[in-house]
C-alpha cells in the first residue's frame, strides 16, 4: 500500500476529493447500468405473471381467447 495512513489515503495530498468523486461516480453509473436490465426483466416477468393470474381468475375459456390460441 502506497499511503501511510487511512487519512492520507482519503486526502491524497489535496487531490482526494477529485479522485474519490470520480471513482464514486463511476461505480454509481456502472452499478446502475448493470442493475437496469435485471430490473427491467423482473418487471416484465411480474407484469406478465399478473396478466396470467388475471386470466386464470376469469376462467380458462376467456384466457384461451385472450392469449389468441
Amino acid at each position: 500500500m502506497y499511503f501511510d495512513s487511512f487519512k492520507a489515503m482519503l486526502v491524497m495530498d489535496g487531490h482526494g476529493a477529485y479522485v474519490w468523486a470520480a471513482y464514486g461516480l463511476t461505480l454509481l453509473v456502472l452499478s446502475l447500468v448493470l442493475a437496469a436490465p435485471g430490473r427491467r426483466r423482473r418487471r416484465l416477468l411480474r407484469e406478465l405473471r399478473g396478466e396470467l393470474r388475471r386470466q386464470a381468475r376469469h376462467g380458462t375459456k376467456e384466457a384461451a381467447y385472450a392469449s389468441g390460441s
Partner: peptide
Amino acid sequence: LFTAPDFRQGNSYRIIYI
C-alpha cells in the same frame, strides 16, 4: 492504493484507471 503517484500530476492521475 498500491501505485506510486505520478511525478508531475501527483495523486490526481489515479483517475486514469477509470
